[in-house]
């Protein structure tokens, strides 16, 4: 029998990239990345809401930088992170606590379908006003 290889902590990026991955390992890696990104966003969010304390002018002036098409698109992509992390979080809980191991492959597929649908639905909510302006 091949000797059991110890997990190499120093080279964990390489270790994580090298083993064979199925859907579950990707889910685990992406859950981490999206979780960390949301945490980073939360810090920025609290900072960027702070001009609310200084009244209307200050806040609207601050926000005017972030209502450009670029930032609107970024907010949409952020929703993809939110969706992945939430749906996968629910999936983890179901697999552990609701006997989801018996149907985890199906659960994975449903999550992806629900996620894609919700992503585009949110896109419609976010951009419908612009779309309506184009086609009236």
């Amino acid at each position: 029998m091949a000797e059991f290889k110890k997990f190499d902590q120093k080279n964990w990026v390489k270790t994580n990239l090298n083993y064979r991955k199925d859907s579950g390992s990707w889910a685990w890696i992406l859950h981490r990345i999206t979780g960390l990104a949301l945490m980073a966003y939360l810090f920025m969010h609290i900072y960027s809401l702070s001009p609310l304390s200084q009244g209307r002018e200050a806040f609207n002036e601050f926000m005017s930088h972030y209502t450009t098409p670029f930032f609107m698109a970024m907010e949409w992509f952020l929703f993809a992170f939110v969706l992945f992390h939430s749906l996968n979080g629910v999936r983890i809980v179901l697999v552990d606590w609701a006997d989801g191991a018996r149907y985890h492959k199906a659960l994975y597929r449903y999550s992806i379908v629900i996620g894609v649908v919700m992503f585009f639905a949110m896109g419609y909510v976010m951009f419908s006003h612009e779309i309506h302006k184009l086609f009236k």
Partner: peptide, 20 residues
């Protein structure tokens, strides 16, 4: 809470980005 927040904050272009 999160999905509710997202819908609420983008229901109109102003709802998540204006003081009023």
């Amino acid at each position: 809470v999160m999905i509710g927040h997202y819908i609420l904050m983008h229901y109109t272009p102003e709802s998540g980005h204006s003081y009023d």
